[in-house]
Amino acid sequence: MWVFRGLRNGVVTTRWPRRPDRYFTDWHGVATIRDHPSLPPGDIEGLAELCPTGAIHTAPGNGGPDDEQPGRRVGVDQGRCIGCGRCIQARPDLFAWSAGAGVAALARQALVVPAVAETDETLAELRDDLRTRVRALGRSVHVRHLDVGSDGSDEWEVLALLNPVYDVHRLGIFFTATPRHADILLVTGAGARGMAAPLRRTYQGMPDPKVVIAAGTDAVSGGLTAPSYAIAGGVGGLVPVDVWVPGSPPSPFSVLHAILLALGRLPGPPGRRRRTDKTGKTGKEPRP
């Protein structure tokens, strides 16, 4: 009976990343700053207080001729954004939802918008380093998930990757129970101090080469639970993180995007965060 039930509704699986998926492109989970918001000085008073996690920062510009925006600058650290939307509600002229679920980045500072100029070079280095490391993994990777103080919703979103809609097995991605078989360590949660030792042992138990993904704003910065006596404020201080995914919780597509970003398997137009392997070896899925 179950066999027939399984055939009942046809194929419900997304074809992303081979084909675009509306649910991926329409996703908005974190705030960003609009392009070139020209702000009169003094208009930024109280902007930082809009954000309950302190993700909005304001700083004086350099005042030079290359300063796009004289006066003051406003930025958003998406790694701290919990997606409450308060800034967008209060100042729609300045803030907006970032478009699409592909919000992961290879460096913590790359989550800060507008981007700092030197970030691009750092990113290129990180990408090269990661590429050499993941080369050995081939097209079949095993992911070990570990919760280090999440609110429980992150686990639902990670688990969703196994449902028929995302079905990551089609991409050669499998979840494994043991760190010994794992290539990717997918960490959720704010970095609870009680989990510091188990996290370290899990990391050490994984064979090289290994990749660590901090999934969720909690894992990136501690989110709303930071600062606290009981958490480290993100997992970056506990293990070396390669990919940072904001979102509270991150959408399943965001997590999948991060895994493919780590593996250099993202297709599509080159962009700040989506640049594919220059050799062209990656980015194409094998035909079924």
Partner: peptide, 22 residues
């Protein structure tokens, strides 16, 4: 205890309207 996050202390000093996010 492994995932104790200190939530109760975190609530303190928050504005009541912010507490709902936590």
């Amino acid at each position: 205890f492994y995932k104790h996050r200190g939530i109760e202390k975190r609530f303190e000093h928050m504005a009541p309207a912010d507490g709902v996010l936590l």
